[in-house]
Amino acid sequence: MYPVTELIKNLADRHGRERRNLLPILQGVVEQEKYLSEYSMIEIARELDLPASEVYGTATFYSFLEYKKMGKYIIRICKTITCSMKGKNQIIKTIEDMLKINVGETTPDGNFSLLQTNCLGFCHKAPAMLINYEVYTDLTPEKVREILTNYINKKGREE
């Protein structure tokens, strides 16, 4: 039994197997696996007795439910008007230089993915970004470098 199948079984037991519980289950899988693989979508469809295409259609609608391989930490920079006015591009440049990847890519070692997202609701502390579910605001290039280094170390410590 793959770990994902087991995870999906528990999520289904916890949330229920109706169509309206689909989104919580999808979120549960993304929280763990960082993305929805083809296999996991099929398992969800089997568990909830739903057509696979419906699961795929619903999942691809929401920007947080990724369906491509993602790194362990997903960095999401807010690109809406106030953040982009307050220097979001410099932040992106700094991260790109540090991690050697462009927006939309994942680092070769699979630790970080860099994405852009729409308004995070921190316009008064722009620019802002999310790393997985943590919010970081009033970013400056130095602050970003510092945040990333301790993520890399934290990452290092876990290994």
């Binding site: 057509p51 696979a52 295409s53 419906e54 795929y56 259609g57 691809t60 609608f61 920007s63 369906y67």
Partner: peptide, 20 residues
């Protein structure tokens, strides 16, 4: 009741497609 086709993605990338 076969649901071979579904609507996928959002905004301007929205299209009719099969599973993956």
């Amino acid at each position: 009741g076969v649901n071979a086709l579904t609507v996928a993605y959002k905004g301007d990338r929205m299209k009719i497609s099969t599973f993956f």
